[in-house]
Amino acid sequence: MYTAEFTYHRAKSLSEALQMLQQNPEAKLLAGGHSLIPAMKLRLATPPALIDISRVPELKGIRREGNTLVIGAATTYYEIETSDLIRQTIPALPEAIEQIGDPMVRNKGTIGGSLAHADPAADLPAVVLALDARLKIQGPSGAKVVDVDSFFQGMFTTAVGQDEILTEIHIPLSSASPSAHAPTQAVRMAYEKFPHPASRYAVAGVAVVIGVSGVRAAFTGAGEHAMRLSKLEQALSGKPLDPQTVEAACQNLVDPAQLMGDHNHSAEYRAHLIDVLAKRALLRLV
């Protein structure tokens, strides 16, 4: 319940935050704090310094740049949930976020924190994989933009280096027409989650997006990190999306041997859940 000691630094700008990271190489960034502080209270994490980026203006906000939706990393779940722009362009994103934790968690937690933390049971990693997002990362020597497929690298490990900051999440809106306001023209996404009864994190979760170039799907909650459901994507490739095809495709999507299990939810069960959730998510869209 009581964290170890640390020094606290609040960054006022992105450059200041990067500087502070340089000066405190073992520091951790503090965004919403809703993954980091629980870990610190159990002393599973004992960073000597925290750099608070929650008030860095460059990391906040939601905007549209042409056919891309840009979300600042320190934007809270609540801000995303209630954004008109997001409701119009990706209405399923607020629905997915609604399933994260509880209202207090969503008032504080940030999209960047969730992605950078890469908890194997977190929801948004699967969602951004399905959305084919790109992640903008700022380091001491400049910015890079990485593909979501190379972002998640292991359990709690991402493409963000120790001296870097995830600054923006870019989501392509290519499947929606640029001026679209009608939901039918919005990104066709669905997220299905099977929450853990106590932690509320995902025992398994599946996100699917039906885009112009086919289906993208990803799962979370069972592997080392969120991953694409390539078997499903291939099975549906070039096929008409009807319930029969979906039903037939959602079989043994992942090998239980690749998954984690515990006494409540074995790997085999989670693999089965992924089939069920993928089917349910797709059936909501076809």
């Binding site: 853990h196 009864p197 106590a198 932690s199 006494h263």
Partner: peptide, 28 residues
């Protein structure tokens, strides 16, 4: 439906806090 104070064979309490032990919420 939910709760189990679960020890594994080695005597480790696996449901050692509210992250694991499912005290039901209003929605459950």
């Amino acid at each position: 439906l939910y709760e189990h104070g679960y020890y594994d064979e080695d005597g480790e309490l696996r449901s050692s806090n509210l992250l694991e032990y499912a005290v039901p919420t209003a929605a459950m």
